[in-house]
C-alpha cells in the first residue's frame, strides 16, 4: 500500500505537484494519466525518491520513504522507463541481474530468476541472454527493461510511459504481458501514461492528473460514466465516449443464458467493442460466448450492448 499525504513539490514558484493525496492499495494496478506537464511522472518519481518532496509525506506500508536509506528503498521498488535505459556495456542477462547483484543474491538464484523472467516476458526461444542491448528490437529492449525492473521480486513496480515509444502492435503485446504478469505476481504497479486508451485498458483504477492535482480517481467505468467535471469528460470521453465504454467492459459481465449454436463465437474475456466488431463483421445480432477452452457459456445480443449495466 502506497499513501501520498498532502504531497507538494515546487520548482521555483510553481508547484508541479500541488497538495496531492492518494492511496494505492497493495496488489493494485493503478494508472496515472494526464497530459504532458501534468506532473504525473514527477509524482511517480517522488515515490522512489528520484525527486524529493517539499511538503507532505509518502508512506509505503505505513513507513515514511524518507526513513528508509535511499539505495535500499529503490532496490525494493522496480522501475521501468520509456527510454528503457539498458546498460549498453552489459549483456541482457547481466542487465536483468543488476538489482539481484546489488542485493548480493547467490549466483545460482540469480540465474534461476533470470531464466524465469525471460520466460515470463516471452523472451525465451530468442536466445537473447548473451546478446548486447543494441542487437535487440525496441520491443525486446522494453521487455528486457521490464524484466530488469521485476528481477528482485519487488512488491512495487513503477512504470513511466514504458510503451510510449513502441509501435501499436508491439505495445499491444506488451500491455497483455503486463496484465498477465500483474495477475500472476500480484505486484503493486503504478503506471504512468498520457494515452487514455492504454489507461482504460490496463488500469484497475485510474488517477487523472492535471496541473499537479488529481481531477478524479476511479475505475475506468466510473470515469467514463460519472466524470467529476468537464475536464475529465473531455479527457476520458474524447470524441466517442460510447465506444470507449464498450472498450472497457467485458463480454463476461453482460452475457445471458441461452443457446445459439449457429451464431458466430466470441471470447468471454473479449471487450464489448470486440464483440460489436464481430457482430458487424458477420451481420449477426447475436453471438455465442465461449471461454478459453471453447465451452459455451451463454449468448450476447446486440441489445445487451446498449444496456448500461456495470
Amino acid at each position: 500500500m502506497i499513501e501520498l499525504d498532502h504531497v507538494t513539490r515546487r520548482y521555483g514558484e510553481t508547484a508541479v505537484i500541488d497538495d496531492l493525496s492518494l492511496r494505492i492499495e497493495g496488489g493494485e494496478l493503478f494508472v496515472l494519466v494526464g497530459p504532458s506537464g501534468s506532473g504525473k511522472s514527477t509524482l511517480l518519481r517522488t515515490i522512489n525518491r528520484l525527486i524529493s518532496i517539499d511538503d507532505g509525506a509518502i508512506r509505503i506500508d505505513g513507513r515514511d520513504v524518507r526513513e528508509v536509506p535511499v539505495a535500499s528503498l529503490r532496490r525494493g521498488i522496480g522501475y521501468a522507463i520509456q527510454s528503457v535505459g539498458l546498460f549498453p556495456h552489459r549483456t541482457v542477462a547481466e542487465n536483468i541481474a543488476t538489482v539481484p547483484r546489488l542485493l548480493g543474491w547467490p549466483a545460482a538464484r540469480i540465474r534461476a530468476r533470470v531464466d524465469e523472467l525471460i520466460a515470463m516476458l516471452q523472451l525465451d526461444g530468442e536466445n537473447v541472454l548473451d546478446r548486447y542491448p543494441h542487437a535487440l528490437s525496441g520491443g525486446q529492449q522494453q521487455r528486457v527493461g521490464v524484466a530488469r525492473a521485476l528481477a528482485a521480486e519487488p512488491a512495487i513496480m513503477l512504470m513511466d510511459e514504458p510503451f510510449g515509444a513502441l509501435d501499436p502492435l508491439t505495445r499491444d503485446a506488451l500491455q497483455s504481458s503486463i496484465q498477465a504478469i500483474h495477475a500472476q505476481t500480484g505486484t503493486t504497479i503504478v503506471f504512468v501514461t498520457h494515452d487514455m486508451d492504454e489507461a482504460l485498458r490496463l488500469g484497475e483504477r485510474i488517477g487523472l492528473m492535471e496541473s499537479g492535482r488529481l481531477l478524479q480517481v476511479g475505475t475506468p467505468l466510473e470515469l467514463l460514466r460519472d466524470p467529476a467535471c468537464e475536464r475529465v469528460r473531455a479527457f476520458v470521453g474524447g470524441e466517442n465516449p460510447g465506444l470507449r465504454e464498450l472498450s472497457v467492459r467485458r463480454v463476461r459481465s453482460v452475457l445471458r443464458d441461452g443457446e445459439a449454436s449457429s451464431a458466430p463465437a466470441v471470447d468471454a474475456d473479449a471487450t464489448l467493442q470486440q464483440a460489436l466488431a464481430t457482430m458487424l463483421e458477420h451481420g449477426s445480432d447475436v453471438l455465442r460466448v465461449r471461454d478459453a477452452k471453447g465451452t459455451t457459456l451463454g449468448v450476447l445480443h446486440l441489445t445487451d450492448l446498449l444496456a448500461r449495466k456495470p
Binding site: 535511499v70 528503498l73 535505459g85 546489488l102 530488469r148
Partner: peptide
C-alpha cells in the same frame, strides 16, 4: 542508463 541505475538503487 544513469537514470535507470539510480532508479534501481
Amino acid at each position: 542508463a544513469v537514470e535507470a541505475a539510480r532508479g534501481m538503487g
